[in-house]
Design a protein around this nucleic acid. Structure first.
Lengths: 343, 343
DNA sequence: AGCGCTATTGTGAGCGGTAACAGAACACAC
DNA sequence: GTGTGTTCTGTTACCGCTCACAATAGCGCT
């Protein structure tokens, strides 16, 4: 029977998996050479490379990137914090973001913050503990403590969707104020003179609604009915909200909604009540989701290129990770007002 | 001026951040005590705990979970592999999955495999290199090499959405064959006698279509028109596909579609051509996405509880991570045929 | 042959934690 | 007083990898 290890203490049970050492021994080289074959193959002679690669296959070696990351302080992981994946705008951006990162061999660590921002502090700590090489955030951060944590991490950070606050580092998005203003001017320009706005109470939607109201005030229109609903906004909320508006005396006019889903609800509710769209009730949504163009009537809305946001955010981070400075720290992807048949 | 470190070699520049050592020195205790305060506070006297906690705040210490994971071989990271986030069914399941994991302090590492499964091998290797504690997969894996890799990882694995193959470890999903069969029987029962099926060419959609056809064959119906489109299926493809069916002589009957989006396209195309839905063309979708109930006419479809899949998958993994055996290795969440106005 | 140079490979010391054990301090029973 | 636990804290040895540097080999040239 095998003797117990001399000396007393039992050895810590190692994972049992092949390590660099295993491969090195089999190939008859040093650990470092194996490491080079994997990470800098151009610095190793082709004969050795071959021997080592065979040994890797034979042992079924899978590198341990925890150890590698610890030693090199580069993890090849980028973390992203998003309120929710159930919203197509966010999941679309993350899809584009992840796809772009994968091209350069980066993996994505995802954190879902939910809408109330309280969890954000803990979540951020949990994520930074994993030492990502870079960070993608949704929205801009304002809690002083959060900003401090972010700066202390000393990694490239890109904040997305919103351009309204000063970015901690870089930003890719568009101006929600400009959207509110653009929509107001568009509707006013089309001749509408009575307005309402229905928005989720998340920060960005609020920003759009507020600017919508402010811009109309500039045109001398002061009685804009405002309805705020809890985020995330849904079609059901749109239906309800229109009911509420009508109950409060709103008869006809143009309604700005904080999402296409909500706008869809408003259209359906109007139709159910026998109101003409856009004759009595004109509606404009936000997002230009797939179904918007195929509603009846097709929905006028604000188009945002969610994939561009994800892709450009990834590229900004990758540029910095490659050691280059970025050309512009703030990238405005803009928006388009898509006129269809509900306005 | 400070002397260069005696002896020659320059010290490796450390991260500059606070480590356990920093905190321990400040608090006047050993590293191990600090580690205990963080991970097993109940084993430390409250006076020491207080001193250490103050030191942690003062230094702004953020634990390095790479080092911790390396030492303990537990990373508190669970990885997920999904074809795409642009599909609401997948992103919804991942949302529920991540939310459930977060409750137990686990973070999620995401890999997007795309539809062609070739990338899966590399992706899996990249993910396993990060040493996740558990793994969520979409679909069941059949490549022998993949299965070998998975087994070698020796971690809990849950395969989702599909129950048709033998699971590597655990599975949460439903039977696509049962769906195909159920839809066929439902439509046949409603009196339809002419059929077509339009499906994306991903494996699960194919499975449903094939079983749909086979079940109808059992009812003596053998001329079911089949159209296959590249995944992912979209509304535009639905429109096109109906055009193709009609061009090939299909006049009237019931059409099974592999997604609600596609079914929506079929409905729109039928309406555009002046065909009655469901009078001439009956349509049933798959997924019961938010818009399905609000189309005109409202879409009949197959409802899948995507959130249940994500949540149950997370719970299966968490159970195993807690060291308990799971009650059932395979969980069938089932499906419902939702009859609305297109059938 | 001897020199200097460049291209490869090896060596040793960490990276920042945790597991396992050892030791100290204290309480309690005999 | 001594033996025996029970807590709590400290010590030591790694986890698996990469960095910085050292050592060696191979080459052309004088």
């Amino acid at each position: 029977m095998p003797a117990k290890a001399a000396g007393g203490r039992t050895a810590r049970p190692s994972s049992g998996r092949a390590t660099l050492e295993t491969v090195a021994t089999l190939a008859g080289v040093s650990r470092m050479t194996v490491s080079r074959v994997i990470n800098h193959p151009e610095t190793v002679t082709s004969e050795l490379k071959e021997v080592v690669q065979k040994a890797i296959l034979e042992t079924g070696y899978v590198p341990n990137l925890l150890a590698g990351g610890l030693a090199s302080s580069r993890t090849k992981v980028v973390a992203a914090v998003v309120p929710t994946l159930t919203h197509v705008l966010f999941s679309g951006a993350i899809q584009a973001f992840t796809d772009r990162l994968a091209l350069d061999g980066y993996q994505m660590l995802l954190g879902l913050s939910g809408y109330p921002t309280e969890r954000e502090g803990n979540l951020l700590q949990a994520i930074l503990s994993r030492r990502p090489d870079a960070l993608y955030l949704t929205g801009t951060s304002h809690l002083a403590q959060t900003r401090r944590q972010l700066r202390a991490a000393k990694i490239p950070i890109v904040e997305t969707w919103d351009l309204s606050h000063k970015a901690v580092d870089m930003a890719v998005g568009f101006s929600h104020k400009a959207v509110g203003q653009g929509v107001a001017n568009y509707l006013y320009g089309k001749g509408y003179r009575q307005f309402a706005t229905i928005g989720a109470d998340d920060e960005r939607a609020t920003l759009r609604s507020r600017e919508f109201v402010a811009t109309l005030a500039g045109h001398g229109i002061s009685d804009v009915a405002c309805i705020s609903t809890p985020a995330p906004s849904t079609m059901a909320m749109g239906r309800e909200a229109l009911g509420e508006l009508l109950a409060n005396g709103f008869r006809r006019g143009a309604i700005q909604c904080s999402s296409d889903a909500m706008a869809h609800g408003v259209v359906l509710e109007a139709q159910a009540r026998g109101l003409a769209v856009p004759g009595d009730i004109a509606v404009i949504g936000f997002g230009d989701l797939d179904f918007a163009a195929y509603m009846s009537p097709p929905l006028s809305t604000v188009r945002i290129d969610r994939f561009a946001i994800g892709r450009l955010a990834a590229e900004a981070l990758l540029t910095r990770l490659a050691g280059h400075p970025v050309a512009r720290k703030v990238v405005d992807v803009g928006f388009d007002i898509v006129e269809r048949a509900t306005t």
